[in-house]
Simulated assay, not measured.
Amino acid sequence: MTLIDRLKDEQKAAMKAKDKPRLGAIRLVMAAIKQREVDEGITLSDDDVIAVLTKMVKQRRDSVTQYEAAGRQDLADVELAEIAVLDEFLPQPLSDDEVAALLDEAIAATGAAGMQDMGKVMGVLKPQIQGRADMGTVSQLVKAKLG
């Protein structure tokens, strides 16, 4: 079952259960997927859907930070609820040890020797960890290893 099919099934289940917060979050995902499909004129693969989900989670985490800084916990709670729903559809996150092992493999595979090779290493890592680890953190780890 593809990720889009799973999202559609979960959307139907949320409708039947009258779970409005969950249904709203899933509808936002489906709208974002449809928008990207229309914009690019393609049907998204599971990897593309994971990229959309990852982007949406990142946006919501940024919003939570801003809402909490502004003292709007009510709005932050709504965003946190949406993050919980979106996380269900993302692959299991990688542990720090797994990320470190993938990083070492990527450096060895590319023969990276310094910061000028960071793009090569990130190019190898991105498909392996997309949606399973924070790319900003991974980027910092790569910089630390190559620097």
Rank of each mutant, 00 (worst) to 15 (best):
residue 81 A to T: 09
residue 110 T to S: 04
residue 121 V to E: 01
residue 61 R to H: 14
residue 2 T to D: 07
residue 127 P to S: 09
residue 44 L to P: 01
residue 111 G to Y: 05
residue 77 D to A: 15
residue 123 G to Y: 00
residue 47 D to F: 12
residue 140 Q to S: 10
residue 28 L to V: 02
residue 74 D to R: 02
residue 75 L to D: 07
residue 52 V to A: 09
residue 144 A to M: 10
residue 53 L to H: 04
residue 91 P to A: 09
residue 78 V to D: 00
residue 65 T to P: 09
residue 41 G to T: 10
residue 14 A to C: 06
residue 48 D to C: 07
residue 51 A to F: 10
residue 47 D to C: 10
residue 73 Q to I: 15
residue 118 M to W: 02
residue 141 L to V: 08
residue 5 D to H: 05
residue 135 M to Q: 11
residue 50 I to Y: 12
residue 77 D to P: 11
residue 76 A to N: 04
residue 141 L to K: 11
residue 112 A to E: 02
residue 15 M to D: 08
residue 77 D to H: 14
residue 140 Q to A: 08
residue 71 G to T: 11
residue 102 L to H: 06
residue 132 R to W: 11
residue 146 L to T: 03
residue 102 L to Q: 07
residue 47 D to M: 14
residue 132 R to D: 08
residue 56 M to T: 07
residue 80 L to P: 02
residue 53 L to S: 06
residue 147 G to S: 13
residue 41 G to P: 10
residue 26 I to F: 04
residue 108 A to S: 07
residue 125 L to Q: 05
residue 41 G to S: 10
residue 27 R to H: 07
residue 75 L to R: 10
residue 110 T to R: 03
residue 92 Q to I: 05
residue 107 I to Q: 04
residue 118 M to E: 03
residue 34 K to E: 12
residue 138 V to M: 07
residue 17 A to S: 06
residue 75 L to W: 08
residue 136 G to C: 11
residue 117 D to W: 04
residue 51 A to K: 10
residue 12 K to D: 11
residue 144 A to G: 07
residue 27 R to L: 04
residue 126 K to M: 12
residue 52 V to E: 11
residue 83 I to L: 10
residue 69 A to T: 14
residue 111 G to I: 03
residue 76 A to H: 05
residue 22 R to Q: 06
residue 139 S to N: 03
residue 80 L to V: 08
residue 37 E to V: 13
residue 103 L to E: 00
residue 132 R to H: 13
residue 123 G to C: 11
residue 48 D to A: 07
residue 11 Q to G: 01
residue 68 E to S: 13
residue 45 S to V: 13
residue 42 I to P: 00
residue 44 L to E: 03
residue 118 M to C: 02
residue 23 L to P: 08
residue 121 V to F: 00
residue 3 L to S: 02
residue 124 V to S: 03
residue 141 L to G: 03
residue 141 L to W: 07
residue 129 I to N: 02
residue 73 Q to C: 08
residue 28 L to P: 01
residue 142 V to P: 03
residue 104 D to V: 12
residue 12 K to A: 14
residue 3 L to R: 03
residue 87 D to Q: 15
residue 54 T to I: 12
residue 50 I to C: 13
residue 25 A to M: 05
residue 95 S to N: 04
residue 66 Q to N: 15
residue 128 Q to Y: 04
residue 47 D to P: 09
